[in-house]
Structure formats: structure tokens, C-alpha cells
């Protein structure tokens, strides 16, 4: 190899820092535009519908199977030392704290992050974003802000629903397959659940919602060069959102629960 490793690492570091800088600048600008009037209410509502409502089936399916498999897996493990009664609690805490927000957000990143990047990217390469500007409409206000707002608002709602559906999945397996008493299962679920378990998950969801829509908008907005550029923007939006979700998840967990 002719290029020394250190050069490659140096280049990657510089590229990474440059990208971080421009994403941060984009994010600040977008947030500033999102909080200042005018607000495009119709855009915001249609994005809430698009991001929230239409994601329900995929998020719900993910949640129910996750709850079911959690109950089944923890049973096979906990039965070895007769700790089956902890299962409802394990299910609900894993779901609300970690799996609910992370899995729902990953599914939304695949579905919504990609479509945002593709839509805004196409608008960029076909000059529709330039056309917005010539019609005295700020593309950040009209395109980016509504998506960010919808992401931050809808993800917590999706995750709350996914928590409930996930617990239901665990309950079904617990009661109908593992022969738990149904009221005992529910009591065990609720008694040990703390406010912080659910709350931390919802905060995570809001942050992830912001990251997903931000990555979709950023990669779409900065895409260039026709269909190929838009395709690349789509991939980058999903990959970067997924990585950011895992990274931020760790630090948020650390912030909420480590002492």
C-alpha cells in the first residue's frame, strides 16, 4: 500500500470533524427556524401523520414480538434458578428503558429517515428548493422545521404505545404459554415499574426523533448530482441516524441511570 495508514486516519478524522461541524451548523439553523414564526401548520400536521401515524403498524409489530421474545427468553434463563416471578418486571423495564425507544427509532429511521432524505434530495437536484427560495419561502421553515417538529413530537408517542404493546406481548406469552396467573403478571409488571423507567425512554425517543429527521433533512438537503446522489443521501441518512441512535442511547442511559 502506498498511502501510509496514518495519512488515511488523518484524512478520516478531518472528514469526520468537517461533517460534524456542518451537521451541527445545519441543526442550529434548523432549530432557530423551527421556533420562529411563521409556522407552516399544514406541513407540520401532514408530517406528524406521515412520521407518526403511518409508522404505527411497523412499530407495533416490532414491539409485540420483542415483548413476546423477552418473556420467553427470560423464562428459559430465570427458570434455572426459580426466579420466574421477576419475568414481568424484566420485560417491562427492558422495554421502557431500552428496547422500546431504540427498536422503534431504528424502525422509524429506516422508514422515515430514508423517505425524508429521498424527498428532500429529489427536491434539491430538481431545483425545487431553489424554486421555494424564489417564491420567498424559506426551505428550512417549509421543509426542515416541520419534519424536525414532527419527529420530536411523534416519537415519544410511538414509543409509549410501543411500550404498552410490548408489555401486552410479554403478557400473552406469560399467561398463555408459561402459565402465569394473569392478575399476578400484571401486578408484577406495575408494582416494580418506576416513573423514571418510562420517562427516560420517552426522553430518549424525543432525542432519537430529532436525530432521525435531522439526518434525513441534512443528507437530503446537501445531496447533489441526480439520482445517484439522492440514493447515496438516503443510505447515509439511515446509516448515520442508526449509529447516532446507538451512540446517544448509551450517553442518555449514562446520564439517567449511572450514579
Amino acid at each position: 500500500m502506498s498511502i501510509p495508514l496514518i495519512t488515511i486516519l488523518g484524512r478520516m478524522t478531518i472528514a469526520f470533524l468537517a461533517a460534524t461541524g456542518s451537521v451541527t451548523a445545519f441543526a442550529f439553523h434548523a432549530v432557530r427556524q423551527a421556533v420562529q414564526p411563521p409556522y407552516y401548520r399544514r406541513q407540520i400536521l401532514s408530517q406528524i401523520l406521515e412520521i407518526g401515524y403511518y409508522s404505527l403498524p411497523v412499530v407495533g409489530l416490532t414491539a409485540i414480538f420483542t415483548g413476546m421474545v423477552l418473556a420467553l427468553q427470560s423464562y428459559t434463563g430465570f427458570a434455572r434458578f426459580s426466579a420466574e416471578s421477576a419475568i414481568p418486571n424484566v420485560v417491562v423495564v427492558s422495554l421502557t428503558r431500552e428496547l422500546g425507544p431504540v427498536l422503534a427509532s431504528l424502525m422509524v429511521a429506516g422508514r422515515v429517515g430514508a423517505s425524508i432524505a429521498a424527498e428532500i434530495g429529489t427536491m434539491r437536484v430538481t431545483e425545487q428548493i431553489d424554486a421555494l427560495t424564489t417564491l420567498s419561502t424559506d426551505p428550512f421553515k417549509y421543509l426542515v422545521a416541520p419534519r424536525l417538529i414532527a419527529g420530536v413530537v411523534t416519537l415519544p408517542i410511538l414509543v409509549l404505545l410501543s411500550d404498552i404493546i410490548g408489555v401486552l406481548g410479554g403478557y400473552l406469552v406469560g399467561v398463555y404459554k408459561l402459565d402465569f396467573n394473569d392478575t399476578a403478571y400484571l401486578r408484577n409488571t406495575i408494582d416494580f415499574l418506576q416513573f423514571m423507567d418510562v420517562f427516560s425512554g420517552l426522553v430518549k425517543a424525543a432525542v432519537f426523533g430529532f436525530l432521525i429527521t435531522l439526518m434525513g433533512c441534512y443528507h437530503g438537503y446537501t445531496s447533489k448530482g441526480g439520482a445517484q446522489g439522492v440514493g447515496m443521501a438516503t443510505t447515509n441518512a439511515v446509516v448515520s441516524a442508526s449509529i447516532l441512535i446507538f451512540t446517544f442511547n448509551y450517553f442518555l442511559t449514562e446520564a439517567f441511570f449511572s450514579r
Binding site: 429529489t122 427536491m123 430538481t126 431545483e127 425545487q128 424554486a131 421555494l132 424564489t134
Partner: peptide, 10 residues
């Protein structure tokens, strides 16, 4: 502005 490619909002 009339854009060369139209640039209509699809």
C-alpha cells in the same frame, strides 16, 4: 423565476 427544468413541486 422560470427554471430551465421547470422545478415544479411534485
Amino acid at each position: 423565476m422560470l427554471f430551465q427544468g421547470g422545478a415544479l413541486f411534485d
